[in-house]
Nucleic acid binder design. Structure first.
Lengths: 127, 127
DNA sequence: CTCATCGTACGAGAAGCATCGTAGTTTGAC
DNA sequence: GTCAAACTACGATGCTTCTCGTACGATGAG
């Protein structure tokens, strides 16, 4: 059996502000799926999936206000999908890809691929 | 490119009661993920995934009332995850597996596998 | 026809969630 | 110290969702 990737209870932080992340054992599939089921959040995840070192919130432009953006990033963090850390005044977001892959092999890849497929298809007129 | 599996606008029904299903083009990833993000519905999907020919609602025992069960099956049908058809007084449910695989290759398998993985893991005490 | 079974429709209540604006905190630059 | 930038906290609002009970409709068995 594989060993789990670098354990998640990371308290190591450059500054004082620490953000709570669920440990691997606390990540629940239902919560992850719910986090991914919002169009705005799915968009965030897709953007993060294309980077190697994460992005600050401010670089992902979203069709919602700043406070709503904060809300969505919190949902993603609390569900275990992203890791966030402060770096100066910015907050860097990155996918917890290795950890999710360890927990749920193929899930993230499946969702990302599905999102790509859907984008390549004509969107239905109304909904 | 693959051709789509047997088109979805099936009006062929033995009785009179017809149920509306989204066509392939109408199935949205976000809706599917949302449908799968409820514990009760995920349980249903897992049960259906283990059968070949579908199951009547009444054979999947769920920790909710009958009317709530109806609600969850409707969500699953409207999101495009299951197909339902009347058969006598019963209503048979089956996964739209081929169609989902065509739309979103690997997604369903990823989710089902993730559910299995999670079940094999110790559940966290509280949540 | 009568009846039991299976599922639906219709409210209705409680909870959750997405969204926003405004006011605040933290940080680095000057 | 002062200032701008990045993000958060809080409260409010309106929508969706999960849950239920009760009453109803459709089907097949007797």
């Amino acid at each position: 059996m594989a060993t789990s990737p670098a354990s998640a209870a990371s308290a190591a932080s450059s500054g004082t502000r620490v953000l709570l992340h669920p440990t691997l054992a606390e990540i629940r599939l239902e919560r992850v799926l719910h986090a991914l089921s919002d169009p705005v959040r799915l968009r965030v995840v897709r953007a993060l999936a294309e980077t190697r070192d994460g992005l600050p919130c401010s670089l992902i432009d979203l069709p919602v206000s700043k406070s709503t953006t904060t809300h969505h990033f919190r949902v993603l963090r609390q569900s275990g999908v992203v890791r966030q850390q402060y770096r100066g005044t910015a907050k860097i977001n990155e996918l917890r890809r290795d950890e999710l892959d360890w927990l749920f092999p193929g899930l993230l890849a499946g969702v990302l691929e599905a999102a790509r497929q859907q984008e390549a298809r004509p969107a239905p007129a109304v909904r």
